[in-house]
Design a binder for these strands. Structure first.
Length: 150
DNA sequence: GCCAACGTTGGC
DNA sequence: GCCAACGTTGGC
């Protein structure tokens, strides 16, 4: 089993939204590295759910991979912001996984906390200028963040 | 294949 | 709202 971190703008789609929807297709990722990481995900993998560009940036809780990567349908929709003219049904360019709500932390583990915890050294999201919206997380880092969220 | 220009992300 | 850092595009 692997562990991941996924970013979202809290005002766009928050953990509360996921809790309400229970499950959603993580559409709209338009970055190759992020796409490749999603293709590595397996059902049951756990995800730290991170809000960026929010009042309080940080990990708000946990989501779980509910379905492995499949074609992102928004790439075929000319009305969509995520339309991709290079994509065909036979050869899609973009993929997404389905994720489901797992847990909301008692309080978010803020970016400041992530940065100041010596146990979390090496976590990608801590790095200045880190823009990758889907990233792998080590098991020990994952467990540490969950402990901080309790 | 290089790299400048551009658009976007994301912390502050 | 600002701006630094980043990823992608496209001309050469």
């Amino acid at each position: 089993m692997k562990y991941w971190l996924m970013k979202t703008e809290g005002s766009e789609y928050s953990l509360e939204d996921l809790k309400r929807d229970k499950r959603t297709a993580w559409e709209g990722v338009r970055n190759f590295q992020a796409r490749n990481f999603m293709q590595e995900m397996r059902e049951g993998d756990l995800i730290l759910f991170y809000h960026s560009s929010s009042e309080v940036n940080g990990v708000y809780g946990i989501a779980k991979v509910a379905a492995i990567a499949h074609s992102d349908k928004t790439q075929f929709d000319p009305q969509s912001d995520y339309f991709e003219k290079r994509a065909t049904k036979e050869k899609p360019v973009w993929y997404c996984v389905d994720i489901e709500f797992a847990k909301k932390f008692a309080k978010p583990v803020t970016l400041a906390e992530l940065k100041s915890d010596p146990n979390l050294e090496g976590m990608r999201v801590r790095e200045r200028g880190s823009r990758l919206s889907v990233q792998p997380v080590s098991e020990s880092h994952f467990k540490r963040v969950v402990a901080l969220g309790r």
